[in-house]
Design a protein around this nucleic acid. Structure first.
Length: 365
DNA sequence: GACGCGTGGAA
DNA sequence: TTTCCAAGCGT
């Protein structure tokens, strides 16, 4: 017999009675208690889409002002499609995970070009768009089109882990697939969007990572973890590695009212973003000497060079220990690295600069 | 499956 | 101070 390499998910579905209790309790609670968030004013697919991309790995309170500005600047998908990459990334400045902005922009152009600006309403097509994965596809289809598609994010996995006392590692892909099966089983035919949002809202407001507010939980009566008193032990999740420490030198190179900015490579950390000239793996002790050598190679005549500050910045997987070196040049030479460019210091605020460099500039001024 | 990809908030 | 993140996706 030919064996198939699909892992049995071993799902125990709740009874029909339990399903009904969960549906009614959650929907009732959500309709009464849900937060009045800006992306809940309507169910326009484009608006929902933008909000879901911004909310990926990002807190609601952080997203709100960005969302408001973004929707004012790009009210429709046509406005976004017609914008330049620079404009879109600038609107994303400070939000992080900048590939989200580039993917959203590219996908918006694709939707306008191929579908007349109508956001696809089927799972296969919408999932083919850049930056739209299983969660985002489900969120858009259920919230904007009221389709019965699961939208399983970290909130939902935490809620399900507790509700059904599941000990699976929520960091694994197979667990998410299992949760999606359970969600499909739970979503009511008449309110998929509200139900999916209710699950996430519960995870955000009641079934929180630490100190869940079980006494106020609308589904406490059917919560397996609560009855066993193990809600604080769930969900199970494999620990992530701490960010790797890297010594970094950032240069503040000036001449008169100009400074040098650097366009980062199109791969890796902060890909394609503007920055200040940056070198990894140069320690503070070697900072000045290294930059003197680098300037000598480029035949840049230094008027003054000194360490002007230190800064630590932690990305998702790297921990930069930064030494900021100010270099004042004799001449504003044109022959620089291809990725370098002189700009007027006043123009720094017009380019999209990741926060690590904004923090560096704050130290300087 | 594992890792790369930003940021700022909370405990 | 340290840890863990928060409505994930691409490779």
């Amino acid at each position: 017999m030919a064996t198939r390499k699909s892992k049995a998910l071993n799902i125990e579905y709740p009874s029909a009675e339990t399903v009904q209790i969960i549906q009614q309790s959650l929907l009732s609670w959500y309709q009464n208690d849900h937060r009045d968030l800006p992306w809940r004013k309507n169910t326009d697919p484009y608006s929902i889409w933008v909000s879901e991309i911004m909310l990926q790995q990002t807190r609601v309170d952080t997203v709100i002002p960005y969302y408001e500005r973004f929707m004012k600047q790009f009210p429709t998908i046509f406005d976004l499609a017609q914008a330049t990459d620079e404009q879109v990334v600038k609107a994303w400045e400070g939000l992080g995970y900048y590939s989200r902005a580039r993917n959203l922009h590219a996908a918006a152009k694709e939707v306008v070009g191929k579908y007349g600006g109508r956001v696809p309403d089927d799972l296969i097509t919408i999932s083919s768009l850049k930056g739209v994965g299983p969660y985002t596809a489900g969120a858009i289809l259920s919230i904007a089109y009221n389709k019965k598609v699961p939208a399983v994010d970290g909130n939902v996995m935490r809620v399900f882990s507790r509700l059904f006392a599941l000990t699976d590692d929520i960091a694994s892909i197979s667990t998410r697939k299992k949760m999606e099966k359970i969600a499909e089983h739970l979503i009511p035919d008449d309110a998929p969007g509200d139900f999916n949002q209710a699950l996430m809202e519960l995870g955000a407001m009641i079934c929180t990572p630490t100190s869940p507010q079980c006494l106020f939980c609308p589904v406490q009566s059917v919560c397996n973890a609560y009855h066993q008193g193990i809600q604080e032990e769930l969900p199970r999740k494999k620990k992530a590695k701490p960010p790797q420490e890297v010594p970094v030198v950032v240069a503040w190179i000036t001449c008169d009212e100009y400074c040098v900015v650097e366009k980062r490579e199109n791969h890796g950390l902060l890909r394609g973003m503007w920055s200040l000239p940056t070198w990894e793996e140069i320690t503070e002790e070697d900072a000045v000497e290294s930059l003197q050598n680098i300037c000598a190679e480029k035949q840049l005549s230094i008027k003054d060079i000194r360490i002007v500050g230190k800064l630590e910045h932690i990305f998702s997987h790297r921990h930069w220990k930064i030494t900021i070196v100010a270099i004042h040049l004799e001449k504003k030479q044109d022959q620089l690295l291809s990725r370098w460019k002189w700009i007027n210091i006043d123009e720094l605020e017009q380019i999209a600069l990741p926060n690590v460099y904004r923090k560096a500039l704050d130290l300087l001024f």
